[in-house]
């Protein structure tokens, strides 16, 4: 029983077919895995390419300035007007209302979870919030239109059957788990030593949270809101169902108005001949939507990364 058997000399290993096969497989797999990773880049490229190339037809007929400044959006009328403003304002109204709901609630909830709740309790609460995030958006849309709007009508005079207020509120609740999970992570990453400094001065918990933890986690918390806003802007089903599909440049959120996403849904439901101007409009408006969300996502990404590097 000697361990110095010579079936494994260096030369034998060098020419071993088993090892060669292993090496070939390993090399193949590293190429395959790289390809998987590169696909993500190709997706983004494909998105930009499709949006730009398919909206080309549109921008050849409609000057960019008209598109951005005209106040009416009536692409299927005989007397067609192509101003994106009504869609854009409705989108921003709905997303703005969502943020007005999610910002204060999200701040309170994330401070509560990161600074007040006991770890065990937090471990129970966070999954429950995740369940809220798991509800399909079409279900939220149903809830907004069939349940909440009739209810809200009794309290808010002048509220239309389709309006921006209720779907905005529902979206606010919808993005709440998202806001909380990112900003709570950021707050908990703030080093304990900073908190200890504040507690040593005799500060109360919530004062510590607002004077030390939130400033310390500022870029992370900001990132959470940027990313959440981008979500709200791109959210589709809730507004498509409950905010109506009528392009309407309005300053009153009690009225219904089609957002960019609702418009794309509405057009897709009809028959869109490939290559027609109507077909091109959904890509042109999609391009606007993509540009807005891209800006917020990238900004959020860098803020989050900077925050991670800080601690």
């Amino acid at each position: 029983m000697t361990a110095q058997s010579d079936d494994l000399t260096f030369e034998a290993l060098r020419s071993s077919t088993v090892l060669r096969r292993g090496r070939i497989l390993a090399r193949t797999m590293s190429v395959v895995l790289f390809a998987c990773a590169v696909i993500s880049v190709l997706i983004t490229t494909a998105i930009i390419w499709v949006l730009v190339s398919e909206s080309w037809v549109f921008f050849r007929q409609v000057p960019l300035l008209t598109f951005l400044t005209d106040t009416q959006w009536t692409p299927v009328f005989t007397n067609a007007r192509y101003g994106v403003l009504p869609l854009l304002t409705a989108t921003l109204w709905a997303a703005g209302i969502a943020m007005a709901v999610a910002t204060p609630l999200g701040l309170v909830l994330s401070v509560y979870l990161s600074e007040f709740a006991r770890p065990r309790f937090r471990e129970i609460l966070k999954p429950i919030l995740e369940l809220l995030a798991a509800v399909p958006t079409v279900v939220f849309g149903y809830f907004a239109l069939i349940f909440l709007t009739p209810l809200a009508k009794q309290f808010i005079p002048g509220l239309s059957g389709f309006n921006l207020l209720v779907p905005g509120f529902v979206m606010g609740i919808m993005i709440l788990p998202y806001v909380v999970s990112i900003s709570e992570d950021a707050m908990r990453a703030v080093p304990m030593s900073l908190r200890e400094g504040a507690f040593a001065l005799g500060m109360s918990r919530w004062r510590t949270a607002f004077s030390v933890v939130i400033p310390g986690a500022f870029s992370g918390v900001t990132a959470a809101y940027l990313l959440a806003f981008s979500r709200a802007v791109g959210e589709t089903m809730v507004v498509a169902i409950a905010a109506g599909q009528n392009p309407n440049l309005t300053s009153d959120p009690r009225e219904g108005a089609a957002t960019i996403t609702a418009y794309i849904v509405q057009m897709s439901l009809g028959d869109l001949p490939h290559g027609s101007l109507a077909y091109a409009t959904i890509f042109a408006t999609g391009l606007v939507l993509f540009a807005i969300t891209l800006a917020f996502n990238v900004l959020g990404f860098f803020l989050r990364r900077r925050f991670r590097e800080a601690y």
Binding site: A46, L51, G234
Partner: peptide, 10 residues
């Protein structure tokens, strides 16, 4: 973070 409807357009 890309809105799901954009994937639809793609």
């Amino acid at each position: 973070g890309v809105p799901s409807i954009i994937y639809g357009l793609l």
